[in-house]
């Protein structure tokens, strides 16, 4: 970090500096809020649209240009969702897939990422390129051989194709975590090595605690990947009783006529936990920033 000390600034007197800082801070905070608020509108719009549609009758959904406020409010869209499909079961199925998936993504991938980031071994960079290249071939042309493989293993019709491969780590997560591990300071590890720690201990006691932000990020990605996956469950699950939430939404999509009100009500119920989860996870982070006095 030699760069930090390189630059020097002419030192103004103490008093004028704090005054200026206060004004600058107030203006900046105001501008930031303005910016963030206006920006939020663009990004929250689909949610508003989703919720608004979920409370409309189909005759109002068909209106153009669309109304914002439902008239009348069709609250029954929410209760009727459960007549159409056992979404409780679908939720359990989804969670059943998500837990090992997230676990695998976080643990296996982070181990490999640590090795790629920090440990020296012949051929490591070549292996890393192979790892990246697995993301470069479109899945549409490997689908049939992959399916045949799972069929031979007797896995088609079970959760296994959706869970087991992920347990072995995922190229995207490995690459992501590798990038983070490489920017952690090296001194801590060197000290630990001298203290006689082995690499697993270093990983467990030093790297992982420092890598919380990226671990959280990977968890979010893994969670959402499994939560939203439509194609995997469609192809590999055989019975309605095994369905996940995202596949379950298909019950509202009929030939020529989709029950939009119900679909949107079910979708709203499906995204709400994600939004809450994300919000509370972020609250933890934000507290972290406040405590350490983040400045930027």
């Amino acid at each position: 970090m030699t760069t930090i000390t390189k630059q020097q600034e002419s030192q103004p007197t103490r008093i004028s500096r704090t005054q200026r800082t206060r004004v600058v801070k107030a203006v900046r905070s105001l501008l930031t809020h303005l910016f963030l608020l206006v920006g939020s509108f663009f990004f929250v719009a689909p949610l508003i649209f989703l919720v608004s549609t979920s409370l409309k009758a189909s005759r109002q959904i068909a209106k153009f240009p669309p109304d914002l406020i439902p008239d009348p409010f069709i609250w029954a869209n929410y209760s009727d969702v459960f007549i159409y499909a056992p979404f409780g079961t679908y939720l359990l199925n989804t969670i059943f897939i998500i837990i090992p998936t997230v676990f695998g993504a976080a643990i296996t991938s982070s181990l490999a990422a640590y090795a790629f980031a920090r440990l020296r071994a012949p051929g490591k960079n070549a292996i890393f390129m192979v790892l990246l290249s697995t993301m470069m071939l479109p899945g549409v042309v490997t689908l049939i051989p992959t399916y045949i493989l799972y069929a031979k293993l007797g896995w088609v019709g079970s959760f296994k194709p959706l869970i087991v491969p992920v347990l072995f780590g995922n190229a995207f997560y490995i690459f992501l975590m590798r990038q983070f591990f490489t920017s952690l300071p090296r001194e801590l590890e060197d000290a630990a090595l001298i203290d006689g720690c082995n690499y697993l201990q270093i990983f467990w006691r030093i790297i992982l605690p420092l890598a919380k932000p990226v671990m959280a990020t990977v968890t979010i990605f893994a969670f959402m990947g499994a939560w939203n996956d439509y194609f995997g469950p469609l192809i590999y699950l055989a019975e309605k009783s095994q369905y996940t939430l995202s596949l379950g939404l298909q019950v509202f999509v009929q030939q020529h006529s989709t029950e939009w009100g119900l679909l949107m009500a079910a979708s709203t119920m499906m995204v709400t936990p994600i939004i809450l989860l994300f919000f509370f996870a972020q609250k933890q982070f934000v507290q972290g920033i406040m405590l350490t006095g983040m400045k930027g």
């Binding site: 640590y114 790629f116 490591k124």
Partner: peptide, 9 residues
């Protein structure tokens, strides 16, 4: 250690 950590993948 490096190879072992990458082995699962």
């Amino acid at each position: 250690a490096c190879y072992l950590f990458i082995l699962p993948w």
